[in-house]
Amino acid sequence: MAVIFDLVVQGAQMALVLVLAPLLTGIVRLVKARLMGRRGPSPIQPYRDLMRLLRKEAVLAENASWLFRVTPYVVFASIWVAASLVPTFATGLIFSWSADLIAIVALLGSARFFLALAGMDVGTSFGGIGSSREMMIASLAEPAMLMIVFAVALLAGSTQLSTVAAVLQQPEVGLRVTLALALVAMVIVAIAENARIPVDNPATHLELTMVHEAMVLEYSGRHLAMIEAGAFLKLLLYVSLIACVFLPFGLAPSGAGPAAYALALLVYLAKLLGGGVLLALFETSIAKMRVFRVPEYLGVALMLGLLGVMLLFVSRSL
């Protein structure tokens, strides 16, 4: 019986991230528009976009291969699985032990791997530029992310997110320099990974500095919908991750009652909203940087992560 309940909770988590992801993006867009003095679309506009795309006929380039057609689903699936492994409102989900933080990073890596391949499939210069730049950014963001993972894992003595969240909920953890460094690094990585300003501009087309959009330029219809949905999920994933690791309060422990789950859910929604607003604020207050400045920007994240880990290694002995 408990197993079934656990399964339901796990299923609910998967459904929840799927449902909430477009909303988060919608909110970010709305807040950004308001900050710029525009009225902006409704926060549920992303849902409408997705539905519209799904209904449309997909147009494929003449020489697109099967890889091109499969990739959107694979990318979507990888990100979805990763997102549903991050504790959103409850820890100790039934399948959480099947993959830890390192695996989540790797799952995101898989999504990117296939997306970059798809960008090269048709053989256009735009696709190539997108893939090449995406991989460059990832090459620097991923180690930074892993360093953050190291820092957190060393602090918590585990790479399991559930355990991490549980440990960091303890009051004795307190405020740590390492955590602060890791948080800053994590934000930087999250911005880069989600193709946000200042690394990339998600709202642009026809601009030589675009990265992510150049890669998916040839996609249309349901394929594009899956990729968009994947992007929404990824943003949600990062916000949840930051929330889970750095603001772990309010998470329901494993086997809590429905009431506790409901409360935790509300807390989670509040965290998402806060994250979205902060992101929009940040994006409107900064200009996009040139592509070749990006490595320096990500290098900062890598250094911060490494510094955090080093500090941990040193402080452990004291």
Partner: peptide
């Protein structure tokens, strides 16, 4: 991963559209 790949694909193909057209490269 298999589940999350196959299920959405099936759902989309069943309930949305599976129409595909080949066209020139857009670029």
């Amino acid at each position: 991963i298999a589940f999350s790949t196959v299920v959405p694909a099936l759902v989309i193909h069943r309930f949305a559209t599976r129409a595909t057209r080949r066209g020139a490269i857009w670029d």
